[in-house]
Design a protein around this nucleic acid. Structure first.
Length: 888
RNA sequence: GCGAACGUAGCUCAGUGGUAGAGCGUUGCUUUCACACAGCAAAGGCCACAGGUUCAAUCCCUGUCGUUCGCACCA
């Protein structure tokens, strides 16, 4: 490839880093705590510092950035508030894995040193994430950057913890919780993933009874067997005891409606300390609870001879021993769902344990209401149902984690009186007995506890800051559906509880990005797409536009490279259109009133009027689509307008004008071109900030030093300009375009080379058409590559191709002379094909019109329109049939 | 088991109560002075299936089939 060719390629690498740096230096992304402008705020869902950003982040960030830039340009005090999340379990997990590679463990290292290691990790990846965001073009207010373990957030966390504790909404209690033996920590219900497992159902003899279980080792913790109270088979045994195998213990037979008579033998072993249902039964019947597990998932001293074994091993041994004693009646394959730790993949054990909980009922109620009454809306709306379903069935939230990375629970236990002091400020003594012998909880809070406060903790709460007054509640939250419960719901609860208002008004739910085959991206499949690599190859704007053009609220998006290439090509198209325009404008004198300068209407050509009119339509559409968060429609509207209207038609149409010698007309066109390009660049900016800013800097007419801070065009603020693009004249040009297309169609179908100049007669059927064609003859000649163009109602009709063109009230027969140019059989085929198509169309219309119910019931204008169409089709068909005859 | 979404051109997907659009791909023609990452033209679809509402349905309703995703304690 020669240098010459390179020059007309857009190269993002020359542009992006430089412009981003410049934007930062100029402080364009900063929002004001106090401003006369209306506020607009998006809080960034803080990425986890576990690693780098993936393509899904790129999508969500692009949406947020586009919205923020759009609002900023639309006169808002727009704040996009950035931050990162410490992501307790996840980050601790990756650092532990790092350590394991070095042959170390966190326990060997000790809490203090381990936490130092995690901070080192956080520094590295936190910084990398920020770099990635800058590469994408994210226009956040970096001065306000927050990390979830920052002092400010920690203060907010303690305040909320203490207040909820005082209200009785946080409590510590011994309950059955989900325990990850791998992490050696409690998990919340949400962190448990139920996976289908092919297991075995073991039927075990308990004296006269047979019970079925998938987890025979838990029989060591059995305290009863249960049958259904109405089950006649076992009625006599209720209240009696049965021997528990392998233990020498006897356990009672109880009756409970929880038991399904039909399933298995209709007898259930009750292990309250290791099963959620059994826990409920045990509580109802005031049974003892025997915990047989240690924190690491091995059996404890209650496991008797099995003590010290891991669950799987114990299971094997128990089964062997049962067999040996002839107590194993049957083994059958059985698929069931087993809870797994969503982080480590370990099988979750229900475990009796002392943990901290948040009472959810009273927090959930208002959070439900604000969604029910539409104060907070979901897009797509279907998610409201999911959200409400969860809130309606909510369980208390286990918030303590036996981890080292996170906010340590602000509770101190007195060694002397056992009293627990819960306080915001680290206390020096027990608040009850005054003893100085107090020790803080070792546990940290669920990472989502601090996330729940994000919309206000990032703004300085608990201080009543200006930022809070200005920006809370925020406007839109853009996030994936995977964290609706984890995060969205809890932010709404906490916002209502501590700010008395919702944290945001709209929630836009995005889908997952999958690979081209529709598979989830995963490291093991090796199909993960790194946004930075994409940007490196294609440029940030191409990547952004690819995502924007394909995103549809709530739907997954298949990422394909051909599509990305297509939008990379679009960037190149924009670039070259700008290059051409600037070349045309190289000697153009910028008007004194700059962006407000208007050309004299009488000097404007039809193409000028047309493009201004189309621009107005485009501006209105784009405004409507972004406002409705329909990014793909906005992006596609711009793509269509820029490529197919501005480039394909306008830039081609004005060539005869700008290369022509009519100075007044040329000046008008140059002004229209300069203004249109200016507006196109601004329209594009929120979507493709880099290329638009780069072109903006070279525009002869511009209102600001940077595109980022210029005004976003829309029909309301662009009225003076848009009114010079009158629709009537745009319609006139549509006729010209239709005529050109008709000639090109004849050329293409007859395979006539572009180098062959055609002889054409345009036969206008009315005075209006006559005038339009006269005025625009140069366009037709150039764009249809004509050697000769007559405009005349009369003339020869033999050996010619004919296409009737009808646009609005204008009618023109386009006649291309083919004698000596081409053999006429192709043209015959073309006309026959067209006639067939028109006849089919006409037939359908006539069928409808002959239905009297249609005529009676359909709106008059629809009927009228139908009749006119039939008329028009008849005329066209007639004309074509005539010309077919004349082809000979 | 409960709930939700989706099924439109070869592929990936938009879209609308008046029988359909894009990008890529395909087929011709063209290296014409912004762009071959281009231009021009063309081919290609009973809008999953069956009912219903309506003058009219791809769009609304019901059901069937298929795909996907949530939620759920059947031992």
């Amino acid at each position: 490839m020669s240098n010459n060719e390179l020059r007309d390629r857009y190269n993002p690498k020359d542009v992006e880093a430089r412009l981003y740096k410049w934007w930062l230096e100029r402080g364009y992304f900063g929002a004001q705590d106090k401003s006369t402008k209306p506020p607009f705020c998006i809080i960034l869902p803080p990425p986890n510092v576990t690693g780098q950003l993936h393509i899904g982040h790129a999508l969500n960030h692009t949406l947020q950035d586009t919205l923020t830039r759009w609002k900023r340009m639309s006169g808002f005090n727009a704040l996009w508030l950035p931050g990162t999340d410490h992501a307790g379990i996840a980050t601790q997990g990756v650092v532990e894995r790092e350590l394991a590679k070095e042959g170390q463990s966190r326990r060997e290292l000790g809490r203090e040193k381990f936490v130092v290691r995690v901070w080192e990790w956080k520094k590295k990846y936190g910084d990398r994430i920020i770099e990635q965001m800058k590469t994408l073009g994210d226009s956040c207010d970096w001065r306000r950057f927050v990390f979830t373990l920052d002092d400010g957030v920690s203060k907010a966390v303690r305040r909320v913890f203490v207040e909820l504790y005082k209200k009785g909404l946080i409590y510590k209690g011994q309950r059955l919780i989900n325990w990850s033996p791998k992490l050696e920590s409690a998990l919340s219900d949400l962190e448990v993933e139920h996976k289908e497992i092919k297991g075995t159902l073991y039927h075990i003899q308990y004296g006269p009874l047979v019970v079925a279980t998938t987890r025979p080792e838990t029989l060591l913790g059995d305290v009863a067997v249960a049958v259904h109270p109405d089950d006649e088979r076992y009625a006599k045994l209720i209240g009696k005891t049965v021997p528990l195998p392998l233990t020498g213990r006897s356990i009672p037979v109880i009756a409970d409606t929880y038991v399904d008579k039909e399933f298995g033998s209709g007898v259930v072993k009750i292990t309250p300390a290791h099963d959620f249902n059994d826990y409920a039964v045990g509580t109802r019947h005031k049974l003892a609870m025997i915990n047989i597990l240690n924190r690491d998932g091995t059996l404890n001293e209650n496991g008797g001879s099995y003590a010290g074994l891991k669950v799987q091993e114990a299971r094997k041994r128990v089964v062997e021993d049962l067999k040996a004693q002839n107590l194993l009646v049957k083994e059958e394959p059985h698929t069931h769902y087993v809870g797994h730790d969503s982080r480590s993949g370990a099988v979750v054990e229900p475990l009796l344990s002392e943990q901290w909980f948040v009472k959810m009922e009273s927090l959930a109620r208002p959070a439900r209401q604000v969604v029910e009454n539409g104060t907070v809306t979901f897009e797509p709306e279907a998610w409201t149902k999911t959200y409400l379903h969860w809130l309606n069935n909510i369980q208390d939230w286990c918030i303590s984690r036996q981890l080292w990375w996170g906010h340590r629970i602000p509770a101190w236990t007195c060694a002397k009186c056992n009293h627990v002091t819960v306080a915001e400020e680290t206390p020096s003594q027990c608040e009850k007995c005054g003893s100085k012998d107090i020790e803080q909880e070792n546990d940290v809070l669920d990472t989502w506890f601090s996330s729940a406060l994000w919309p206000f903790s990032t703004m300085g709460w608990p201080n009543e800051t200006e930022a809070l007054k200005t920006f809370y509640p925020t406007d839109v939250l853009i996030t994936g559906h995977d964290i609706i419960f984890f995060w969205v719901a809890r932010m709404i609860m906490m916002g209502l509880e501590f700010r008395g208002d919702v944290p945001f008004r709209k929630v836009l739910i995005t889908g997952l990005i999958r690979d081209a085959e529709g598979r989830k991206m995963s490291k093991s499949l090796g199909n993960v797409i790194d946004p930075v690599e994409l940007i490196d190859e294609f440029g940030a704007d191409s990547v952004r536009f690819t995502l924007l053009a394909q995103v549809s609220a709530g739907k997954d998006l298949k990422f394909s490279f051909p599509r990305l290439e297509g939008y990379r090509n679009f960037m190149n198209k924009i670039w070259n259109a700008a290059r051409f325009s600037l070349q045309v404008l190289s000697e153009f004198e910028p008007p004194v009133d700059g962006v407000n300068a208007l050309p004299k209407i009488e000097n404007m050509c039809d193409a000028d009027s047309w493009i201004v009119h189309k621009l107005g339509v485009c501006e209105a559409e784009v405004h409507k689509h972004i406002d409705g968060l329909h990014f793909s429609e906005a992006a596609n509207t711009l793509y269509d307008f820029v490529w197919h209207e501005f480039c394909d038609w306008y830039l081609e149409l004005i060539k005869p004008v700008v290369y022509g010698d009519r100075a007044d007309e040329k000046a008008a066109t140059q002004l229209v071109l300069a203004q249109t390009l200016n507006r196109i660049v601004r329209l594009l900016h929120p979507f493709v900030p880099f290329i638009s800013e780069e072109i903006y800097g070279r525009l002869p007419i511009r209102g600001e030093e940077a595109c980022v801070i210029d005004q976003y065009p829309n029909p309301r603020n662009d009225q003076n300009w848009l009114q010079i693009g009158r629709k009537e004249r745009a319609d006139e040009l549509d006729l010209v375009i239709a005529v050109i297309s008709a000639i090109r169609n004849i050329r293409g179908e007859n395979r006539i080379k572009p180098s062959e100049e055609l002889k054409v007669r345009l036969a206008p059927k009315d005075e209006g058409s006559q005038k339009i064609l006269q005025a625009n003859r140069a366009y037709v000649e150039k764009l249809a590559k004509l050697g000769e163009c007559q405009i005349s109602e009369t003339g020869s009709l033999t050996k010619c191709a004919l296409t009737p063109v009808v646009i609005q009230s204008y009618r023109v027969d386009v006649i291309v002379y083919l004698e000596g140019v081409v053999d006429l059989s192709e043209e015959r085929k073309r006309i026959e094909k067209t006639i067939e198509k028109l006849q089919k169309e006409k037939g359908a219309l006539e069928g409808r019109l002959s239905n009297e119910n249609f005529v009676k019931n359909a709106p008059a204008e629809v009927v009228e329109q139908g009749r006119a169409q039939v008329n028009e089709l008849s005329n066209k068909i007639q004309t074509l049939q005539d010309s077919l005859v004349r082809l000979g």
